[in-house]
Amino acid sequence: MKALLITGPVGVGKTTVAEAVGDVLAAAEVPHAVIDLDWLRHCRPAPADDPFHLELELRNLRAVARNYADAGAHRLVLAGVLENRADRARYAEAIGAKLTVCRLKADLSVIRKRLAQRHAGDAGLQWHVHRAGELEKIFALAWVEDFVVAADQPVADVAQDVVTGWLAAERVQ
């Protein structure tokens, strides 16, 4: 099995692009599964020493990846936030597969606009806007990705660029 993790800041379109990559794979008749990692850790309360529930996410990912492989998936497309290289290795181990990482990038003004639409009237909007900027700084220093794709273009174009980058990265790895 091979896996792609699409990462980037909050609001950049990770889940939307992952679903569109799944559509590209389906059109090519490639057995696959798409996993939004947020749902694998969505549990409250989170422990004080693991505020984003990474440990729960990895345990769940291990089980889900195995189930999808048993069901015939050859490729996994993951959407989630990956902040450092040590966690990248942990994701690859949990999946039990080669992991390629794509970072989506968009101007923070584009991300703010998307977040404002998604969180209209939501008290958490400011937290998400702040987190997006914080993550951009983390990604600039961490270099967790194998390639970067501009996410401020139509989703179908972003998905095609992601698939092209994934295939190119696999040839290099």
Rank of each mutant, 00 (worst) to 15 (best):
G22T: 14
A69W: 10
D146C: 15
K98H: 02
R88K: 08
L37N: 07
M1L: 10
V144L: 07
Q126L: 00
G121A: 02
A48H: 06
P45I: 11
A33H: 04
P31M: 13
L61N: 06
P45H: 12
G11Q: 04
D122I: 00
D38T: 08
H74L: 13
R118K: 15
F52Y: 11
C102P: 02
N84F: 12
R85A: 04
A33L: 05
R59H: 11
G72Y: 11
A89M: 08
V110R: 06
A89Q: 12
A140M: 05
D36L: 07
I111F: 07
D70R: 03
T16K: 07
W166L: 01
R103W: 03
T100R: 00
G72L: 12
P45G: 12
L141S: 13
L104Q: 04
F147G: 12
A150C: 04
L5D: 00
A26Q: 15
L78H: 06
L76E: 11
A33Y: 03
G124L: 11
R75N: 11
E55D: 13
V21C: 09
A33P: 04
F147H: 12
E145L: 05
D23H: 12
Y68F: 14
L141Q: 12
Q160M: 14
Y91K: 07
I6P: 04
A120K: 05
M1W: 04
L25P: 03
A142P: 05
Y91V: 07
E29W: 07
V162W: 09
V162S: 11
R103L: 05
Q117P: 04
D161V: 15
D107S: 07
T15R: 09
T16C: 06
T7Y: 08
A18M: 14
K113C: 01
A86V: 10
G80R: 01
W166C: 01
K14T: 13
Q117I: 07
R59P: 07
G124D: 10
E57T: 13
H74G: 15
D50F: 09
N67Q: 04
G8W: 06
R90P: 15
N84P: 13
T100D: 00
E19Q: 10
T100M: 00
L78R: 04
E55Y: 09
A94K: 09
V149H: 06
L82T: 14
V148T: 13
R85F: 01
A94P: 10
W143Q: 15
C102H: 02
A97W: 01
F139W: 02
E134R: 00
